[in-house]
């Protein structure tokens, strides 16, 4: 267990998680503290539906279906769906590193099989999705014109991260449950000596983990903060007013025609 390992996989892990959490809190606070609103809301909540439950339904629908993108080009919709669904399932699988699968009734063997087939498939989905999105960003002249360094950085980082994940899953097949998982659980529990579990791993595993930590620390500072945005966006999560008008019309006609 070298000093570099302790720095990256010990201190580095704490630092990246701290930056992630503090950054997300700071972002959220910034948006909540921005109290001024350009008023007269409701973009997407269909006519006649009001209140917080319909707003929540709309947010969930947007997160899982990307339905608003169907007016744009196909690669955007297909790439976004593939990447996001792929990465969600893959991330769900990564939870097994922190929560022992046995605690939710999944045997070690089943976990391995799920990780290989379900995890592998979702990784492939995410990777192809990223490639589609990258090709679109480069290939569509107007999208290229509005692209920033942040857009490319996020795409490249994710491509390498997911690509490495795929190589590990299908080619290298490390015994991560007894190395990476033990390291993560140990260090998260405050035991820095658990770094020794990961220090025996090969360079590609270490690179995948290190890039994941870098990614976590990067999330709050650029475009990757976008998922959080939906929950506070005034136009979607905001309130529309005026439903009283339907009953007014009925009352007025009743009054006149009585």
């Amino acid at each position: 267990m070298s000093l570099i390992d302790i720095a990256i996989f010990g201190i580095g892990l704490y630092a990246s998680l701290l930056v992630l959490i503090a950054g997300l809190v700071a972002r959220t606070a910034r948006w909540i503290n921005a109290k001024r609103l350009t008023g007269l809301y409701s973009v997407s909540i269909p006519s006649g539906q009001y209140g917080s439950s319909s707003a929540l339904k709309e947010i969930v629908k947007r997160i899982f279906t990307f339905y608003t993108l169907n007016l744009s080009d196909k690669p955007l919709l297909v790439g976004s769906l593939m990447f996001h669904w792929g990465i969600w399932i893959a991330l769900l699988g990564h939870l097994s590193m922190v929560i022992p699968p046995e605690t939710v009734g999944i045997s070690k063997e089943l976990q391995k099989t799920l990780a290989l087939y379900v995890g592998g498939t979702s990784g492939i989905l995410a990777f192809i999705g990223l490639l589609i999105l990258f090709a679109r960003r480069l290939g569509r002249r107007d999208v290229r014109a509005i692209s920033t360094a942040d857009d490319y950085f996020a795409l490249l980082l994710l491509l390498v991260l997911v690509g490495l994940g795929l190589a590990l899953t299908f080619v290298i097949k490390p015994d991560y449950m007894s190395t990476v998982s033990k390291w993560l659980r140990g260090v998260l529990a405050g035991d820095l000596s658990a770094v020794s579990y990961i220090s025996v791993e090969g360079p590609l595993v270490k690179l995948h983990v290190a890039l994941a930590m870098l990614f976590a620390a990067y999330v709050p500072w650029g475009k990757m903060v976008h998922p959080l945005g939906l929950f506070l966006m005034p136009t979607v999560a905001g309130r529309s007013i005026g439903s009283f008008m339907y009953s007014h019309a009925a009352n007025l006609i009743r009054r006149i025609t009585r």
């Binding site: 921005a34 744009s72 080009d73 107007d142 976008h226």
Partner: peptide
């Protein structure tokens, strides 16, 4: 200080859906 402006600048991922 304006949430619509702050979030428009922070949350946009430059996907270009609005272009179409």
């Amino acid at each position: 200080r304006n949430r619509n402006v702050a979030m428009a600048l922070d949350v946009c991922v430059h996907c270009g859906a609005c272009l179409d």
